[in-house]
Design a binder for these strands. Structure first.
Length: 561
DNA sequence: AGTTTCGGCGCC
DNA sequence: AAAGGGCGCCGAAACT
């Protein structure tokens, strides 16, 4: 059965196509077709399309109503394979891969496109270098061989397949958009911020709060200017190093309350206010342009509109179409469950094998029932907390869950020493990411005072850069393996929704929203739970670890949880 | 005048 | 209480 075909769009709107054998090599002649979408639509038996770039091809297919079951994105795979091979930073275009294969000069990658408010999702990538199908097939065949050389070839194949699936999901979500009520949004803004004044200045409520802050200081103070606020506190006899919330909140001064309120509302105004609405919401949909695998850990990003940072109060504007519902579902305690799965710590797997509150179970075993302490300890272990109660809590965690803590400790040590660190499926951490990279001379620090070389002759010493790399690597294995799992979840959920009216419209690390007719909602909830467990088995193999979801069927996003 | 960095805070 | 991982976004400040 010929289930894999390769495809390369042509300049004239047509395409070159070729069937592939199970070995990934061409199994027939290259075919020329006059219409890209028609060529795909006419081959419904194809289970996987191999192409250079999903972002190049798939939006054009979706625009004509053509969906595909699976794909393989050659340039995304190239990125993942280069990373796995410890070759971060090498150009990752298909053209570059071909040049490396043939020993020619390697072209640099074209510059990244940046987001423009209101711009339609790109139908084309103008700067991208297209390759003839024959060249593409050469790169693909070589990538198949490179998978075989990976630390875990079968996991690496799963990773590239999963991220390609993620790119299909991203393209489909970009097309669907998140249902957004501009009326509700404007109502929320008015409730929070008051009237807008002509001229685009601060709305009424912000102006009032600025007046209150100024009155409390006894002089005119601009609360949106940190330097001004620091100076005002200094004149009041209070030294502050910054105007961050956590530093300001504990101060005893009448300006504190209106200042904090101002900062909260100011944030809404500038980041999700009227101009945001104008820029990003069209025809009842917010389209943030999701990018699968946009970060080194594999988490997604959105390009424009702050799609993954929608403030809780603004979520009231996310409203289902009439007769439709939003199924809002987020994974329960994803990080510790993933840590259990990757570390295979027996105690933590046992705890993560229950659907009930994992932090409560951890606290019953290691923290005398103090759930807050247990949660801090787990998150501290994952994020690399280095001081405060975190260390004491970490010790308690280590006694009860030694393999789990050892797993992240090993990752941290590998990061500090500059060794490669990988997620469960094989996504690889760039050697020096998160290190800050500031040249010591420019920062005014004598060279050698805090350098990596010092670690070699001072026992127990690690430079701040090395420690930062350690924290990054520690977090990377958990956050990144969670992203691995999330890709498989999305792929499975997407398959479950195929043939239904239900559409995935939002994804945020461990949370999904499906927009569907009311009568499909319960089936979607079940599909999410099944997809989560399937993703757990596919990603991590057979473990006792469960991946429960909290799901709500709502008309408005804000009504979930 | 245009571009880059910084400070702060939103989300996970 | 103290301040640790990943991002994007905005205006202001700091540059060229």
């Amino acid at each position: 059965m010929t289930d894999r075909w390769a495809l390369a769009p042509a300049e004239d709107g047509g395409a070159e196509l070729a069937p592939l054998g199970p070995d990934g090599l061409p199994a027939g002649p290259v075919v020329r077709e006059p219409d890209l979408a028609a060529a795909v639509r006419g081959r419904p038996e194809v289970a996987r399309w191999v192409w250079r770039s999903t972002a190049e091809v798939y939006p054009r297919l979706l625009a004509t109503g053509v969906r595909v079951e699976r794909c393989y994105d050659i340039e995304d795979a190239e990125t993942l394979l280069l990373g796995h091979e410890g070759r971060y930073g090498e150009p990752r275009s298909a053209a570059a891969a071909l040049a490396r294969l043939r020993g020619g000069p390697v072209p640099p990658d074209p510059p990244q496109r940046s987001a423009e408010p209101g711009a339609q999702s790109s139908l084309f990538e103008p700067q991208a270098v297209r390759l003839p199908l024959a060249d593409l097939l050469e790169v693909y065949a070589e990538q198949q061989r490179r998978h075989d050389k990976a630390a875990h070839p079968e996991r690496m194949r799963l990773l590239t397949a999963a991220e390609s699936a993620g790119m299909l999901v991203a393209a489909e979500m970009n097309r669907a958009g998140l249902p957004w009520s501009a009326d509700v949004h404007r109502r929320v803004l008015h409730e929070l911020l008051g009237e807008r004044y002509a001229g685009g200045g601060e709305p009424r409520r912000l102006a009032e709060l600025a007046d209150e802050v100024s009155a409390a200081f006894g002089r005119r103070v601009r609360p949106d200017l940190p330097a001004d606020v620091v100076k005002a506190f200094a004149q009041a006899g209070i030294k502050v190093r910054s105007t961050r919330r956590w530093e300001i909140a504990s101060l005893d001064h009448p300006a504190v309350a209106p200042l904090l309120e101002y900062k909260k509302l100011y944030r809404i105004w500038v980041a999700h206010g009227w101009s945001w609405l104008q820029d990003w919401v069209r025809e009842g949909r917010f389209r943030p342009e999701f990018l699968a695998g946009g970060t080194v850990t594999g988490r997604w990003v959105t390009n424009g509109g702050g799609g993954l940072q929608i403030p809780k109060v603004i979520r009231r504007a996310v409203v289902a179409d009439p007769g439709w519902r939003l199924v809002v579902a987020d994974a329960d305690q994803m990080e510790p469950r993933v840590l259990a799965a990757i570390s295979r710590d027996p105690g933590l797997m046992e705890v993560a094998g229950r659907e009930s509150d994992l932090y409560q179970a951890v606290s019953d075993r290691a923290f005398s029932g103090d759930r807050a302490q247990a949660k801090l300890a787990v998150l501290g272990a994952v994020y690399g907390q280095t001081s405060g109660d975190g260390l004491k809590n970490l010790a308690a965690l280590r006694r009860r869950f030694p393999l789990a803590v050892a797993y992240v400790d090993d990752a941290a040590r590998a990061g500090e020493e500059g060794r490669l660190v990988r997620t469960w499926l094989g996504r690889t951490c760039p050697p020096a990411a998160g290190a800050g990279e500031e040249p010591a001379e420019e920062a005014g620090i004598p060279v050698g005072a805090d350098s990596d070389e010092a670690a070699q002759w001072m026992p127990g010493y690690a430079s701040t850069d090395a420690r930062a790399r350690g924290r990054f690597a520690r977090n990377f294995v958990v956050q990144g393996s969670a992203a691995d799992w999330a890709l498989l979840l999305l792929a499975a959920l997407r398959q479950a929704c195929a043939g239904k009216a239900a559409e995935l419209v939002f994804f945020q690390h461990d949370e999904v929203i499906v927009h569907c007719p009311e009568e499909e909602a319960e089936a979607v909830v079940a599909a999410i739970r099944e997809a989560a467990e399937l993703a757990g088995r596919l990603t991590f193999g057979e473990t006792p670890v469960r991946f429960p979801f909290t799901a709500a069927v709502v008309e408005c996003y804000a009504d979930a949880k």
